[in-house]
């Protein structure tokens, strides 16, 4: 464990909690892409299958349980509790365009052709594109509430911090996880455009971020 990975996990946790609290307190999921949240729940489900088979550390186990619980709770709020506020018309991204290539790629590129490893690889590739429906929805509505942009900021920051973690681990322990690094770089690049808007628009204190 190093400070970059810890900061990354905290940033990830903060993002998930920001979104969950926003939906719960406003009792609405307007402007939130349910599809992205479903994809994130799928990412955690396929990645944390080793939760009960491999014990790595208390931190590892606790964080996996927390991420699974919060992501399913978010999906529950969107599709069940506050489903009448779900904006399905604007959440129209065709997720099959993400799932098919990700499934295909995880069968082509993996460390071992075992169910656990192929599913882990699937979760890594899926996480890189899971935010697409949300970013698409924001471009479609042309705006995002500032709290949603804070969610996206911390979500994008988490994988950027993981990249720093991989650089650190490469230089200190020679560790290099090619699949996670390549996918993590792609994932972070998808946020760059948003990061620019976030810094130039939202940080100046505007309530909504309207895209050009």
């Amino acid at each position: 464990m190093n400070v970059f990975r810890l900061a990354g996990d905290v940033s990830h946790l903060v993002a998930i909690i920001i979104l969950l609290l926003k939906i719960w307190r406003s009792r609405s999921c307007a402007g939130i892409s349910g599809k992205s949240q479903l994809l994130f729940a799928l990412v955690f489900t396929t990645r944390y299958l080793d939760l009960f088979t491999v014990y790595i550390s208390a931190y590892n186990t606790i964080m996996k349980v927390v991420f699974l619980a919060l992501s399913y709770a978010t999906v529950y709020l969107i599709y069940m509790r506050f489903r009448n506020t779900y904006d399905s018309e604007n959440d129209s991204f065709r997720v099959e365009f993400l799932l098919v290539p990700v499934i295909g790629l995880s069968f082509l590129e993996h460390y071992a052709f075992t169910p656990m490893e192929v599913l882990w690889t699937f979760s890594i590739f899926l996480e890189a594109v899971a935010i697409m429906p949300q970013l698409f929805m924001i471009t479609k509505t042309g705006e995002a509430e500032s709290i949603t942009t804070h969610y996206l900021f911390f979500l994008g920051l988490y994988r950027a911090l993981y990249i720093a973690n991989w650089v650190w681990r490469y230089h200190t322990e020679g560790f290099f996880d090619q699949i996670a690094v390549v996918s993590g770089v792609v994932q972070t690049i998808f946020y760059c455009d948003f990061f620019y808007l976030y810094v130039t628009k939202v940080v100046q204190g505007r309530s909504k971020m309207s895209l050009p």
Partner: peptide, 10 residues
């Protein structure tokens, strides 16, 4: 070992 090192990340 390699797998362990990989899967200790969230």
């Amino acid at each position: 070992k390699e797998r362990e090192a990989r899967h200790d990340e969230l």
